[in-house]
Design a protein around this nucleic acid. Structure first.
Length: 889
DNA sequence: CGTCGGTCGTAC
DNA sequence: GACGTACGACCGACGT
């Protein structure tokens, strides 16, 4: 039979090391978590590597110990506990508890003493003991049954290794340390005696007592005096470093037996700490019992359920489909819930097995339709935009879209890594959920093929969790002052975005294909030219290979390294500089710009045209950006080129239906106007109101030149400064951008903030708010947490400062255009029912409208957009139109 | 053969 | 050692 092994883990040793090793980790709302994370990782590593059967985490006593009675100055040199660490200590205990690990602590004793005492008892009961710690105090315990494992240094120390390391046997370690002392614990030892001398003395005489007895006869006068004079101090030191093996703890194998953590307990702790990676590892196993939720296949029963929902005044809705792509997804089932824990699933498109039944699709949808369309029945759900689109395609209109948990989670904390329902369930309800894989029995299997019982549990749970999460979130939105933003802006946007996505935009595919051929030919030429210049073929798309050619073979000047310093940078700025030395970089630049546009847009866009609608349907994501902007993906239509000629030709491929025109309306200088409003700076407000050119005015003030005498170059410089202010620019960057000395750049920024004192004050206000409250806000109260703003890590802190300066501006601009989308949509419904909103590109809205009404349409759109909010400066909108998106600009 | 981090480049 | 916010193509290392 194998000998059982007990692992005793020194918590403090690892907490401190983790705290210092991992700086700058915190939850997205600002609770530091580096020490907990590091500690947990280390703990899991021990569990994984050693697979211990018996283990305990051992803590130091919170208050003084018996050593303080012996020696009041014990550990007196320790600086006070860092507050960032102090707040994590209870979190570590929570984590250990949640992992269901046995823990030991005792008033008056340090962890080392408890470990020594437990080890002694475990040895008597026939256990081997491993002391998991980095603390050398424990070396004294090493013997044939006790080893010390320092996981950080990957060291396992038995008596032999201790003897090798210190030069004395484990039982001599206390005597040795009595001579050397321990500066971290303020144990004095004997002055002038370090590790070398101590080891030599102990080896020669055998013990401390014998060393002290022999002191008087020693030859080295300094050593002799020190030993004689500090004899008492040495004896005291030995008492301090000797671990108590008689602490009143009891080793009971059953108590120290490892258990498996319960996901239901662990999940909420991991969620609160935002340890999402660990959360995946500990995901709850399948709850593969019989269905706990109900299933409805009888239309009459569905009717009754919906009547109850109507009476209760709310309905949580979730759809199951065959695809994540809404424009391809077919409805498979609908889950509904109006009372926590009592959701139902209505399958309408499953492939059934023998003996199973589902609702007749048409009958079920017919019953559902009036309830979904009932604006007086508030709808709740997760990512309702998706369900709205799916249901719309199934012929069902949804009104009364009241509470989207994904959107609510985003407003409560836009910085969270995920606003998925699983994350929300963990964070707000402390529960885990059935995974899609479990429900369908595979990763990418269609939901229509899923086992009906599993599908029911999975689907119904979504509706149930959304309902319950919404109840939790509602008061949190109130508390944070986000209620109006949620109710009046973000929620009304949900159906509008659904509509926008479903509308899509038409492409001139023939033109794109033509462009592709032309670009292909030009790329071939450039490629050949580049190979000739390099002397051989290589992959022009590989920065790594290019770096080798440029810097190793051709010997061009190395200008900068990449972020990770692993390679030479070959980005645009570098190649532009190198173009003066050699013709190859210019060729690569040309290749890159063409290849980029060809690969990303010209060749890709046509493949994304939906065969049913003949149009491209992007996703407008409402819960992605940290500032409140929308983002666009699959494809991203918010970064279609505009600056180059080729970009214009790509934009020209975005076209309206025949007989209609493309209309583009964009806010002019919206961020500067927002800055003027938020800061109230008198000069900027005056400039933005007067209609004069704002960059010329800035140049005039920066360079002490009358506006009419401002040169083109001065205006351009002022423009970059104005932009820089919006982004929280550093002097360093400005100097590089404008190719001027750092000192000059500093002077320009100082002069700017001196002239625009309202802006300087606004910046200070944002910084202090972020430091004190931990977040910044936009005009409509949108929040962004910036935990890093109080970090010691300078780079992280300064990045957070720039975010604190930029976010209120960018976020307010986002608030404004979202408001504009809603107001324009209302206006369109009343006045231009044939017009369609097509795209939003941050400060621009794109429409298509019948040719005949375009001028009147443009006028009305401008009026509505300019009037969405009354600011200290007017909002200005430019409207253009044409036969394609390019012409509309 | 798929995943994922790094690099680069487009937009506002 | 980077002025803010995104998305995505491509490469190449890494793990299965």
């Amino acid at each position: 039979m194998t000998v059982p092994v007990l692992y005793l883990l020194d918590a403090s040793s690892y907490i401190h090391r983790a705290f210092h090793a991992i700086r700058g980790l915190s939850t997205s709302d600002g609770v530091p978590t580096g020490a907990v994370y590091g500690f947990t990782q280390m703990l899991l590593k021990v569990i994984k590597d050693a697979a211990p059967q018996y283990l305990a985490v051992v803590y130091d006593a919170k208050g003084p110990t018996f050593r303080h009675d012996m020696y009041p100055a014990y550990k007196a040199n320790r600086p006070p506990l860092d507050p960032g660490l102090k707040v994590q200590l209870p979190l570590v205990r929570q984590m250990v508890t949640a992992l269901e690990l046995p823990a030991v602590e005792m008033e008056g004793y340090e962890a080392d003493d408890l470990m020594a005492s437990l080890a002694a008892q475990a040895r008597e009961q026939g256990f081997q003991v491993v002391l998991v710690s980095g603390d050398k105090d424990l070396f004294q315990l090493a013997d044939e049954g006790v080893t010390i494992w320092d996981t950080m240094k990957e060291l396992k120390l038995g008596p032999r290794e201790v003897a090798e390391k210190l030069g004395v046997a484990p039982e001599q370690v206390v005597d040795y340390m009595a001579l050397t002392g321990d500066s971290s614990d303020n144990v004095p030892g004997v002055p002038g005696v370090g590790p070398k001398t101590a080891a030599k003395l102990i080896a020669e005489h055998g013990s401390l007592d014998k060393v002290l007895d022999a002191a008087a006869d020693m030859k080295k006068s300094k050593l002799r005096e020190n030993l004689l004079e500090h004899r008492g101090q040495a004896l005291l030191s030995r008492r301090l470093v000797r671990l108590a093996q008689d602490a009143p703890v009891r080793f009971e194998p059953t108590v120290f037996k490892m258990r498996k953590p319960d996901p239901a307990v662990l999940t909420p702790v991991l969620a609160r700490l935002e340890f999402s990676k660990l959360m995946n590892e500990f995901a709850a196993p399948a709850a593969a019992e019989e269905a706990t939720y109900g299933r409805i296949s009888d239309p009459a029963k569905l009717e009754a359920f919906l009547q109850a929902a109507k009476k209760r005044g709310r309905l949580s809705v979730d759809t199951e489909t065959t695809s994540l792509d809404v424009m391809k997804a077919e409805l498979v089932g609908v889950s509904l819930c109006h009372e926590a824990g009592k959701a139902v699933y209505v399958p309408v498109g499953h492939q059934l097995k023998k003996g199973q039944s589902q609702a007749d699709r048409r009958a079920a949808l017919q019953v559902l339709a009036p309830y979904l369309a009932d604006a007086g029945l508030p709808k709740i759900g997760q990512n309702l935009k998706y369900d709205l689109s799916v249901l719309k395609r199934a012929g069902l209109v949804v009104n009364g879209v009241a509470f989207d948990t994904m959107v609510a989670s985003y407003l409560i904390n836009p910085g969270r890594a995920s606003h998925g329902l699983t994350a929300i369930a963990a964070e707000f309800l402390g529960r885990s959920m059935i995974s899609y894989e479990e429900a369908t029995g595979g990763k990418n299997l269609s939901f229509a093929l899923a086992d009906l019982d599993k599908a029911t549990d999975y689907a119904a749970e979504d509706a149930d969790v959304a309902l319950q999460a919404a109840e939790k979130m509602e008061p949190m939105l109130q508390e944070a002052g986000l209620e109006r933003l949620f109710q009046e802006l973000e929620m009304p946007l949900v159906p509008l975005l659904s509509k926008l996505e479903m509308t899509g935009v038409a492409l001139d595919v023939d033109q794109l294909n033509e462009l592709s051929k032309e670009l292909g030919a030009r790329l071939d030429e450039i490629e050949i030219r580049c190979y000739r210049l390099a002397g051989h073929q290589f992959n022009l798309n590989s920065p790594q290979q290019l770096g080798k050619v440029l810097f190793e073979e051709l010997g061009l000047s190395q200008i900068k390294k990449t972020k990770k310093k692993t390679a030479y940078s070959t980005d645009m700025s570098v190649l532009t500089l190198l173009a003066e030395e050699h013709p190859l970089p210019a060729g690569v630049l040309e290749y890159r710009s063409l290849a980029k546009l060809k690969g990303t847009y010209v060749d890709t866009l046509p493949t994304l045209v939906n065969p049913e609608t003949g149009r491209v349907h992007t996703s407008f994501n409402q819960t992605v950006t940290a500032t409140g902007r929308l983002s666009s993906s699959d494809p991203n239509l918010q970064n279609i080129p505009i600056r180059s000629d080729l970009g214009e030709r790509i934009r020209a491929c975005f076209i309206p239906e025949p007989g209609r025109l493309m209309v583009s309306a964009d806010y002019s200088q919206v961020e500067l106007r927002v800055l003027a409003h938020l800061s109230g700076d008198p000069l900027l407000v005056r400039d933005m109101t007067s209609g004069l050119d704002v960059h010329t005015q800035t140049a005039s003030r920066l360079f002490d030149t009358p506006p009419e005498k401002v040169s083109k170059e001065q205006r351009a410089r002022a423009k970059t400064v104005n932009f820089g202010v919006l982004y929280g620019m550093s002097a360093f960057r400005l100097a590089r951008e404008q190719k001027i000395e750092l000192a000059e750049a500093q002077a320009i920024i100082e002069r700017y903030l001196g002239r625009y004192q309202g802006i300087a004050a606004f910046q200070q206000k944002n910084l202090s708010q972020a430091r004190e409250l931990g977040y910044v806000t936009t005009l409509l109260g949108r929040r962004r947490f910036l935990p890093a703003i109080n970090y010691r890590d300078r780079q992280a802190r300064e990045a957070a400062e720039r975010m604190a300066l930029n976010t209120p501006i960018q976020g307010t601009a986002a608030d404004i255009i979202k408001l504009a989308m809603l107001k324009v949509d209302e206006m369109l419904a009343k006045e231009f029912p044939e017009a369609l909103m097509i795209l939003q590109v941050h400060d621009e809205l794109v429409f298509e409208t019948p040719e005949g009404q375009v001028e009147k349409f443009a006028k009305r759109v401008r009026k509505v957009m300019e009037g969405v909010l009354e600011l200290k400066v007017p909002l200005k909108v430019d409207v253009g139109w044409g036969r394609n998106w390019s012409e509309a600009h």
